[in-house]
Every structure is written in structure tokens, then in C-alpha cells.
Amino acid sequence: MTDSEASFTTERHVKYYLRCLKTFLPSAYTSNDSNRMLLAYLTLSGLDVLGVLQTKTTPEERSSYINWLYHCQVPTGGFRGFPGTDFGSDRRNKDNEAWDPANVPATFFALVNLLVLGDDLSRVKRRECLKWLPSVQRDDGSFGELVGPDGSLGGARDLRYCCCAAGIRFILRGKGSGVADVPDINVAGLVSFIEACQTYDGGMAESPFCESHSGHTYCAIGALDFLRRSSKDLKPVPLLSAGSSQFEALTTWLASRQTAEIEEPDDEDEEDELPRSLEDPLADQINGLPDTAPLDADTIRCAGFNGRCNKYADTCYSFWNGATLVVGESPRGC
């Protein structure tokens, strides 16, 4: 198939999403049963992006999806990842509630699912959720995933949790939501933690002193964008300020993720050869090519983005890198 003949088979995508939404999930997803809230998000948002959610589902079906989402709401605030941990409100008490916890990613995805379905969030336990949110924040500003037995905090220090927590705060606290008296998270601490995740090469790692990664970079900038949208007193953040050394290092790192290498070389002698970046003349020199060497049409046609230095291209990183550049460079006020 030539480039001129390539097309996006929308109907096949829609058919797959509807299968996941209206029947049993494919058997390959069995091990992800506890992540059903995330799978619902991917399915609903996929149909929404394709512009068919309203036409391919009935009002009754969408109402049932909304009811299922609210069934996953935890009485003390937040949402569980799937109904499997719900042992009923009549049996839930202070001694066993840690075994049916709300978790940060599930809560974020549940709220987004409700919004995608057109719900007004009137049944969300807004105050309870916002009171619960600070309980999953650590002293260093990072967020965990959930509160476990004896008040222990589960989950790594990970920018993914930080982004979801900032998103929950933005959706439920927003502007004039009537919850000003509910204690807020430590916004300054969260910003400080995110800033500490920037590495020597300009990218963002999942936590301080780890390797930079495009997915975590998206989460870092996404979290900061949620905060600047909803925090009127938030001081300018260098990572979002064009001209600052942090911003320039970040955008340079993102642009340098473009590469002409899309798969591992067949020749074993080339195993140690580094992927040649379209933006990095040093990589050309390492590979024995002059930095002015023109790229042929096939190379340019196959160029993609990687997620870490010296890795091969992967389609998902076209989104993580591209979306981060769009969010980071968009001057949005509060």
C-alpha cells in the first residue's frame, strides 16, 4: 500500500471499542480486571474522540454506564478501580475499609468518564473526595496511590499519580465550586517535587534522580497545567515559562526525541549503534556520518519519536512528546 492509499479504518476501531463496551472484554484483558476504570476511560474516550459516542450508544446505555461509575464511588471519598473490592456499605467499617480503598488514578479516570458521558457530577461526594486527596500526598509533595492498612500510603513517588491528583483537584475544586473551606493539597510542595524530577538532560523522570522519560514528562507538564488553571496565586513555574533555562532544556529534550530509527537493526554488527536523531548532529558523528548529511525520503517518511535517549521510535511517544510541547507552550491563564 502506498502513502496515497493509506487510510484510517474508523469503523473497525469503533467496532472494537463497542465490543469492549457492550460485551465481555477480550480474554487478553483478564489480568487487568482491577483496572476496569482505566479500560472504561480508554474505551469511552476513544469513541468520543472518533465522534461517535452519542450516536453509537443510546441514552439508556449511557445512563447505565454513569450508574456503574457511581457504584464504584467509595463512601469516604474517591473511586475504586473496579467493583471487585466492594463488599457493601452495610459491611464496611473503620476496621476493613482499607481493603476497599479509593485510589488516585481510578478517581481521576472516573471523573473524566463521567464528564465524557455528559454527567453533571452532582452525585460525586465532592467534599469527601477533596478531604481524602491530601491524605495521599507525602511530605515531599509527591502523591501515592491509596491509603492502605494502618494509614500506610501505597504507591511509588511517581509523576503519574501527581498528574492524576492535580487533575482531580482541578475538576472538583476548580473555580467557585463551593468547597473553599475544605483543606487543600500542598500545591507548593507538589510543584517543588515536579521541579525536582527534571534531569540533567532536560527531560522529566518519574521521581528525582531517575531517567528522563516522555510519558513522565507529559505527566509533569500536565500536572503543572492543571495547577495553573485552578490556582490563582500560583507563582510562575520555570518549566512553563518560555526563556527560562528549565523550559528551554525541556523543549530541546522533547524535540530531540525525533529519530529515524524505528526498529532494531537486522545486522548483529549494528547492535551497538545508536539511533540517529534528526535533531542531534552529535549522533550523526557517532554513527560515522557527517552532520550535514541529507536524509533520504524514506528515512524522513519513517521518522518517529522515542521516549528515552538512544531508543527506537514508538507510536505512543508521538503523542506524549507532541502533546507535552502543546501543553507546555500554551499560555493559559487561571
Results as ranks from 00 to 15, higher is better:
Pro101Trp: 00
Ser142Pro: 05
Ser4Thr: 15
Pro26Gln: 05
Phe108Leu: 04
Phe209Met: 14
Pro134Tyr: 02
Leu172Trp: 01
Val124Trp: 03
Leu146Gly: 04
Thr76Gly: 05
Cys219Met: 02
Cys302Trp: 15
Leu282Ile: 12
Leu250Gly: 04
Gly81Glu: 03
Phe226Gly: 03
Asn321Trp: 06
Thr76Cys: 05
Cys129Val: 05
Thr292Asp: 12
Asp140Leu: 06
Leu146Lys: 12
Ile300Phe: 10
Gln246Ile: 04
Gly178His: 07
Asn67Cys: 07
Pro75Tyr: 00
Leu153Lys: 10
Phe24Asp: 14
Leu295Arg: 13
Leu42Glu: 08
Pro265Arg: 08
Glu61Tyr: 02
Gly81Arg: 04
Phe319Asp: 08
Leu159Pro: 07
Lys56Pro: 01
Val182Cys: 02
Thr30Met: 03
Asp296Pro: 06
Ile300Ser: 11
Asp269His: 11
Val136Leu: 07
Asp269Thr: 09
Ala313Val: 06
Thr299His: 10
Pro75Cys: 00
Leu53Asn: 07
Phe170Tyr: 15
Pro290Ser: 15
Phe8Asn: 13
Asn306Met: 11
Gly322Trp: 04
Ala166His: 05
Gly322Glu: 09
Asp291Trp: 15
Asp86Asn: 12
Ala249Thr: 05
Ala196Cys: 10
Ala242Leu: 00
Glu61Gln: 12
Gln198Ala: 02
Thr217Asp: 07
Gln73Asp: 03
Trp68Arg: 06
Ser244Cys: 02
Ala283Asp: 12
Leu130Gly: 03
Glu195Phe: 11
Ala98Asn: 06
Asn96Ser: 01
Asp119Gln: 04
Pro105Lys: 01
Trp253Pro: 06
Phe108Asn: 03
Ser192Asp: 15
Tyr17Trp: 13
Tyr161Ala: 00
Ala313Gly: 13
Gly78Arg: 03
Asn306Lys: 13
Gly189Lys: 08
Asp298Asn: 09
Leu239Phe: 03
Glu329Thr: 14
Glu128Asp: 07
Lys56Met: 07
Glu268Arg: 14
Arg91Pro: 00
Leu239Arg: 05
Gly167Gln: 00
